[in-house]
Simulated scan of single mutants.
Amino acid sequence: MQFALLIYETADDFTRRRGPDAAAYWSSWAAYSGALKAHTTGGACLKSPETGVVLSQTQSGRQVQDGPYAETKEQLGGVILFEADTLDEALAWAERCPAAQHGAVEVRPVQPMSEIAEMQS
């Protein structure tokens, strides 16, 4: 079964990616990524929330809003797609994620595209 780990990080975590704490920040991620590598099917680290934009369609046309958007403590910092046999196994990987120490890690099953095609039939 494929799962997605949605990595939510605090503003301090995004700041730690650069500067004096960067080596410690990235070394914890390197260790975690190395352990998960055999199960990983994809993923990406996202740039800080200020770099994104949100597009929405309104009656007056396309609206584009600069980020960050949500008034929350954490922002989406990355996504990891990986294989696990059970939800409990996926949760065990999420628990080891460095972001779980300060932010949050959402575990969500991935819906295969084949299932989406079946629902449209």
Rank of each mutant, 00 (worst) to 15 (best):
S33D: 15
W29Y: 15
V54H: 10
K73A: 13
R17K: 13
P68L: 09
K37M: 14
E50T: 10
R16I: 01
T72P: 08
G61A: 05
G43I: 10
R16V: 03
E50M: 00
D66N: 08
S33Y: 01
T58M: 03
Y25A: 09
T41S: 14
W26G: 02
G19K: 02
R16F: 04
V54D: 04
T41G: 10
Y69R: 05
E50F: 01
A24K: 03
K73S: 13
A30H: 04
A35K: 07
Q59L: 03
E71N: 09
T15M: 02
E74H: 06
A23Y: 00
G67N: 05
W29V: 12
V64C: 08
A31D: 14
L46H: 07
G77T: 05
K47A: 12
G43M: 05
G52S: 15
A38N: 06
R62L: 14
Y69E: 07
Q59V: 05
A44F: 01
T40H: 00
A24N: 07
S60R: 05
L36K: 04
D21T: 09
Q57P: 00
G42Q: 07
E71P: 06
P49M: 06
E71F: 00
E71V: 09
Q75A: 14
P20T: 14
Q75M: 03
Y25E: 12
G77K: 03
R16Q: 13
S33Q: 10
D21I: 00
E74F: 02
D66G: 07
S56F: 02
L76Q: 11
T40S: 12
S33H: 07
L76I: 13
G42C: 06
E50H: 05
S48K: 02
S28E: 15
G52R: 03
R18A: 13
H39T: 14
E74I: 07
Q75D: 13
P68E: 13
S33M: 10
Q75N: 11
G42H: 04
H39S: 15
L36C: 10
Y32A: 11
T72S: 14
V54M: 10
P68G: 11
K37D: 15
A24F: 02
A38W: 00
A24M: 01
E74Q: 08
K73F: 04
A23Q: 09
E50N: 06
S48T: 08
T40V: 15
K47M: 06
T51N: 06
E71A: 14
L46M: 12
A70Y: 01
S27H: 04
S56Q: 11
Q57G: 08
G67M: 05
T41Y: 00
S27G: 04
A23S: 08
T58D: 09
G42K: 03
G19Y: 04
A70Q: 06
H39A: 15
T41E: 11
L76N: 12
A35Q: 13
K47Y: 02
T41Q: 08
P49N: 07
W26H: 12
A23M: 01
D66Q: 08
T72Y: 01
E74S: 05
Q75I: 02
P68M: 09
A22V: 06
K47Q: 11
D21W: 00
G77N: 07
D66W: 00
E71Q: 12
W29H: 15
A44T: 07
G19D: 07
C45I: 10
E50Q: 10
